[in-house]
Write a protein that binds this DNA or RNA. Structure first.
Lengths: 233, 233
DNA sequence: GTGCCTAATATTGTATACAATTGAAAGTCG
DNA sequence: CGACTTTCAATTGTATACAATATTAGGCAC
């Protein structure tokens, strides 16, 4: 059971599958922000009726990954600069506390899982190609989600699910460098501090880590860029 | 525009209304936890088809106020003790940081709004009757939501929306005393500290406040113990 | 050719119809 | 009489049909 499923009471089976598929496609940047998600097209793609598609799109809308405009349809979310800043502000607010909570429930097996994730992340870093790059972005988020899972707090997990997914979207939009290797090293330091029992150091590192991610973004107003893209579709 | 609307991209108009109505009914305890929400019944009540009702119920399910079981239908959520603890753990994690963030954006008009909310809360405290009691529960939550609104962070607002709504549900289920007068006094202290610029004191008071709310709950397993207690009286 | 108005088209919003699953009542057997 | 099986009613899951709205294309006047 994925973290997402754990927290949500799936309303129906078909919609869940579509939701996850689209969600993955967005987070892994296969679907560009602003892309229109026509109910007919998506339905045809999955061989289901619009009814099911609508349920999936509504769920994604609630997660902030999709924007639904009345009588106009659903689009892959195009986070504004303000939204991006709010996402990271919220992460800075939550993740240190999350770390302290995770530390309270930390067991040896958790450390092993985290190490495994870091190793996978490292492996992807060394690989070339766009698909490895996408997997790397996802793996980077998975570390944060794994920390949330350690707390055993399903609500916190769901909040983090949303924040991480939306962060991926923001990075897709405004990210300059990959900056993943940097992020990877920081993940390592955080886990090290956690394993050594120095929770406060881990929190400090986490805040710096989030700062670095945000610093790598080009959040200057994209005036004409935004407008053109929006008008294009 | 309510805080809820602000954060969510309403997928359609009819469902939004139904969602808000049911949501209010749950938060104000007019709908008891566990109550079945039949699509036909709800639809008949609002004179809309099941399609619209399903959309509303799905949204409520995402908020954690409604539980949807496959092929069985939707029910007003019946939070377990574990869920209740997670809700308050998450609030303890978020609300101090939220307070610090609110302090950064605090203006005179915000203080005035908060004072007005407190006054309203106080007025309701002095009133008698179940409807005043319901309004009081809601007003108490509104103070926390107003603090979230001050931050200007829509994501944080939505998280708090959900946490406050689910807290109301938990209080409805497990609350012993009214404890609202106590909560009201604490709200006053928090706002006072905030106005005086002593943010850290406000945070401390907030944590105590949440502790008090949780302490007023009877989170012991509700097996036969309750029954015996009731019968012994 | 430009601007505006009108009509046609396509897409979403909602209602209804049908299929699938569940829960319970009725009937049967031990 | 109790337990099991079977059938039936009711409710949800999904698909389709219809209505409302937005977008686009075409025509007309200027």
């Amino acid at each position: 059971m994925t973290p997402a499923n754990l927290a949500e009471n799936a309303i129906d089976t078909g919609a869940q599958h579509i939701r996850d598929s689209i969600r993955d496609a967005i987070v892994e940047r296969r679907l560009a922000p602003g892309t229109k998600l026509s109910e007919n097209d998506v339905g045809g793609l999955f061989n289901v009726s619009r009814t099911v598609v609508r349920a999936a799109l509504q769920a994604l809308s609630y997660e902030g990954l999709v924007t639904v405009e009345k009588n106009r349809g659903a689009f892959v979310a195009y986070p504004s600069v303000a939204e991006a800043q709010q996402i990271f502000a919220t992460r800075r607010l939550i993740e240190p506390g999350l770390l302290r909570e995770a530390a309270r429930h930390l067991e040896r097996r958790h450390i092993k899982e985290l190490r495994a994730l870091l190793a996978e992340e490292e492996r992807l870093t060394s690989e070339r190609g766009p698909s490895a790059r996408r997997a790397e972005i996802k793996a980077s988020g998975d570390v944060h989600l794994a920390l949330a899972a350690i707390t055993g707090n399903a609500i916190l997990q769901r909040f983090m699910d949303e924040l991480i997914a939306r962060s991926s979207l923001v990075i897709a939009l405004y990210g300059q460098s990959v900056a993943s290797s940097c992020g990877h090293a920081e993940h390592h330091q955080i886990i090290d501090a956690l394993e050594n029992g120095d929770v406060e150091a881990a929190c400090k590192l986490m805040l710096q880590h989030i700062d670095h991610i945000e610093a790598d973004l080009d959040l200057r107003a994209k005036k004409s860029g935004d407008l053109k893209d929006v008008l294009r579709l």
